[in-house]
Design a protein around this nucleic acid. Structure first.
Lengths: 351, 351
DNA sequence: CTGTTAGCGCCTTCAT
DNA sequence: ATGAAGGCGCTAACAG
C-alpha cells in the first residue's frame, strides 16, 4: 500500500475498476440518465430520488469521467493559460488570480509556457487544443498569425492580456506598456536628466518589452532627446545577467545619468552592478523599473517603479473568458490603469 | 471577425465543425483505422499512404480529439500539479521545472492551488480526477487521509514533494526542512546567540513550516536552550504582514539577538521592520531565511539563507511521475541536499 | 419526473 | 498493410 499506483507495478491496469454512472444507477435503482441529471440538473430530479443517487455516489466514490463528459457535451470545462514563463513572478500573480476565478466557476486551468518563442506558443496551444481545453488566455497582444488561425478553426474563445490591442481586433485585458515607460521617462526628464540608458528584455516576440522601449524613446523624442543605442542593452530576465549588462552601461563615457529598465528584475540587477562598481544611487545614477515588485520595493534605496495591475488583469481575463464561454460578451477590450510609484532610486542628476 | 468565438455570439455552436479522423480518412482515401495508425504507429503504415494521410491532416488542420482519445485509451496525458499557492515564487520555480519535463514528454500540466487548506486540496484534486488527470504532484508530505483514499480508489500515481516522508510510505522527492533550520540554528548558536525569535507561516496544514520550526527548536534544545513562545510569531507569507509581526518581536524585552524565519519572505519583511525601527542588522539583530530567493540575496545587507533545491525537485518529480505512468519505478523516495548560504545578515551578538 | 436510445471521436481487435 | 465494427462513459432528445 501507499505506492502511487496500487500494490503492484505495471500500468495501473490492476486497480479496482473505477465506478461509472452505470454502477451508481444500479445501486440507486435508477437509470444512468437520472444519475446524469442528479449531477447536472438536480432541480429537475425528485428530491427523494436525488437523495438515493447522492448516497450511491458517495458510497462508490463516484467521480464523473471528464473525458466522456467532454466528448459528449463538447466542452471540457478546462481553460488554457499560455504564458511566456511560469516562474516570472509577475505572470505568476496574474495566473494565480486567473486560476482563482476559473476555479470558482468550476473550470480547471491548464498551464503552459513558451519561453518567449511565438512559434512554440502555437505548438503548445495546439497541444492544449488537442487536450480539449475550451478557451484560452494568452499573455501579450502580438502573436504568430498561425495562432489566430488555429483558434478560429477550432472556434475557441480567447482573451489576450498584459497589453492593449491598438486595432481592437482581439478581446484584450491589459494596460498600456508604452504609456507606462513614457510617463516614467517624462518624470526623469522633468528631474533634469538628459542622457539615458536602457536595460531591456530582447524585444523579439515580446511586445511588452517592445512597447516599454518604445514608450521611453517616444518620451525622449518629445523632449528633443534621443536614446543612443550604444547606451542600450538587451538580455534575459535574470538578476545576474542584468548586472552584467549594467556594468557595460556604467563603463560608457560619458555615462548616462538615468537608466530606464523594462522591469524590476533588470532594475535590481542594475542596482547590484552599481553596488559592485561603487556607483551611488540616486546620486550618481537614477534607475527605474516596471511592475512594482517586492524585489524592487525592498531595495536600498527602494526602487522607483510602475505598479501594473497584474492581479486585476488575471481576474478580469478570467471573467472575460468565462463570459465568452457562456455566450455572453463583455466589452471586447479593457485597459486598466497603472501608476508611477516614486521612491528613492531616482533624483535629479548631479551637477 | 476576430471575436473570440467566431462571428456570432452564442455558445460557440456556430463555428465550422472541427474536422475529425473521419474527415481525414475520407480526404486521404483510407479508413479511420489507418488515420489512427498513421498518428500512433506510423511505422506500421505504408510510407506512401502515410504521406497522403499527413497531407490531409495538414490541410484540414486536424488535431486529434483528446477527450475521445482519453475515453478510449483510458489515459489523458495530463498531470495535475496541486500547490498551496501559485504565486509563491518558490513553488512557481518548482512548477516551472515540472512543466518543462512534462511538456517534453508530451504531457500537459493542469495546475490547481488550495491556499494552504488541506480539505480544499482534496476537493481540487477530485476536480482534477474528474477532469481525467492521469497522475499528480503535490507539495508537502502531510495531507488529508481522504486524499490518499481518493488517489488509491482511482489508481492514480502521485509524487509528494518539498519534504521527506519519514515512514517512506509515499513516493517523495524533496529535502529535509527540519534539518535545514536545524543547521541554520546551530550556526547561529555557534556565533554565540542565546536568545532567539521565530517568524513563521501558520503551521496548520503546512508541514514545511512545521518542520522548519521543529528543526530550530531541536537545535536549541540540543544546545541547552529553548524558544520562548512569546518570541514566536505566525502569519501569512506576505512581506508587510511579516514586517508587522517583526515589530512585535522587536518590542520584546529582553529582545532576541537572532530571529530565524521559515522563509525569505518573512526574513525580508523582518528586515523592513528593522529598518523602520532603526534596528541594525547584523549588529543589533541577526536574521535568517530559507529558500535563498533573489529577494533575500539582494537586500542590504544580503540575507543569510538556505538554498533549497526547488528546481531540482520539480524536475525529479516530473521524471518520477512519468516513470510511474509508464509502469517503471524509480527509487520511491529521493532526498536532495540543501546548503547554507552565509551572507551579511548574520553576525555574533553584540556584547 | 424518469427511462430509452443514440451517438460524441477515437482506438483496437479481428479479419482480410 | 488496411478495413470493418464495437464500445469507452456520458448526456441530449425524445417518450412516457
Amino acid at each position: 500500500m501507499g505506492e502511487g499506483i496500487g500494490d503492484l507495478p505495471g500500468h495501473g491496469s490492476d486497480v479496482p475498476p473505477r465506478s461509472s454512472a452505470k454502477d451508481v444507477a444500479r445501486l440507486a435503482g435508477v437509470s444512468t440518465a437520472t444519475v446524469s441529471r442528479a449531477l447536472n440538473l438536480p432541480q429537475q430530479v425528485d428530491p427523494e430520488t436525488l437523495g438515493r443517487v447522492r448516497q450511491a455516489i458517495d458510497k462508490l466514490r463516484y467521480v464523473p469521467h471528464g473525458a466522456a463528459r467532454a466528448l459528449r457535451s463538447r466542452r471540457s470545462q478546462m481553460v488554457g493559460a499560455v504564458v511566456p514563463s511560469v516562474d516570472y513572478a509577475l505572470y505568476a500573480r496574474t495566473t494565480s488570480a486567473l486560476q482563482a476565478v476559473l476555479d470558482a466557476a468550476g473550470y480547471a486551468m491548464v498551464l503552459a509556457e513558451h519561453r518567449y518563442d511565438l512559434a512554440q506558443e502555437v505548438r503548445v496551444t495546439e497541444q492544449l487544443v488537442s487536450h480539449g481545453v475550451d478557451a484560452f488566455v494568452f499573455v501579450g497582444v502580438h502573436h504568430d498569425p498561425a495562432l489566430f488561425t488555429l483558434l478560429a478553426s477550432h472556434g475557441k474563445p480567447y482573451v489576450l492580456t498584459w497589453g492593449v490591442d491598438p486595432m481592437r481586433r482581439h478581446p484584450t485585458v491589459g494596460f498600456d506598456n508604452r504609456a507606462a515607460t513614457f510617463a516614467m521617462t517624462q518624470y526623469l526628464v522633468g528631474l533634469g536628466h538628459r542622457h539615458f540608458g536602457l536595460l531591456s528584455a530582447p524585444v523579439a516576440g515580446n511586445d511588452r518589452a517592445t512597447e516599454r522601449g518604445a514608450g521611453m524613446r517616444a518620451a525622449l523624442h518629445q523632449a528633443g532627446l534621443a536614446l543612443d543605442e550604444a547606451d542600450a542593452r538587451y538580455g534575459p530576465i535574470d538578476l545576474y545577467a542584468a548586472a552584467g549588462l549594467m556594468h557595460e552601461i556604467l563603463a560608457r563615457r560619458p555615462r548616462p545619468t538615468a537608466v530606464v529598465c523594462t522591469n524590476d528584475v533588470f532594475a535590481v540587477g542594475g542596482m547590484l552592478a552599481c553596488r559592485e562598481a561603487g556607483v551611488r544611487i540616486p546620486d550618481d545614477l537614477s534607475i527605474t523599473g516596471v511592475d512594482n515588485t517586492d524585489l524592487g520595493a525592498t531595495q536600498t534605496p527602494p526602487l522607483t517603479s510602475i505598479r501594473t495591475p497584474v492581479v486585476e488583469v488575471g481576474r478580469a481575463a478570467g471573467e472575460e473568458v468565462i463570459a465568452r464561454l457562456e455566450g455572453r460578451f463583455g466589452e471586447s477590450s479593457r485597459t486598466l490603469p497603472f501608476e508611477i510609484v516614486m521612491r528613492g532610486s531616482t533624483a535629479p542628476p548631479r551637477r
